[in-house]
């Protein structure tokens, strides 16, 4: 189980990024997890939520985009989602083993919001 380590890496990355936005707080972080990445989105979410509970960022949302395995067919240049380990190109029936997506674990984006006058937990700005 290494989802805890991953959750903390994600929070680390958010922390680093937030240094560029001192007047804002993070509301959502977007992650891409591939089908072949060996990461369990639910376990990751569980760890992430446990780590932010009772902190200033307790409302920080984790948005996970699950990426299926995709192969590219050299014969006809078609890209398709692999289902049930069937690697035949749906367009030309060629056997396509070139995997182009599906093992990622990537930080996609961060959504930040400026602290308003009434924001809970807002930092005082001089």
């Amino acid at each position: 189980m290494h989802e805890m380590g991953i959750a903390s890496s994600v929070l680390e990355a958010v922390k680093t990024e937030m240094q560029r936005y001192p007047e804002s707080y993070p509301c959502k972080v977007g992650l891409r997890i591939g089908e072949m990445s060996a990461f369990d989105p639910d376990a990751l979410r569980f760890c992430f939520e446990a780590m932010i509970r009772d902190t200033d960022w307790a409302a920080l949302e984790l948005a996970i985009e699950f990426c299926p395995r995709r192969h590219h067919c050299h014969a006809c240049d078609h890209e398709f989602i692999v289902r049930d380990y069937d690697f035949r190109c749906p367009q030309c029936a060629n056997f396509a083993i070139n995997c182009v997506s599906g093992d990622q674990l990537e930080l996609a984006y961060l959504e930040v919001e400026e602290y308003g006058p009434g924001t809970v937990g807002a930092k005082s700005t001089q």
Partner: peptide, 10 residues
């Protein structure tokens, strides 16, 4: 609300 791209591996 602003969305900033991160685009890097965890």
């Amino acid at each position: 609300m602003d969305r900033v791209p991160l685009e890097r591996k965890v």
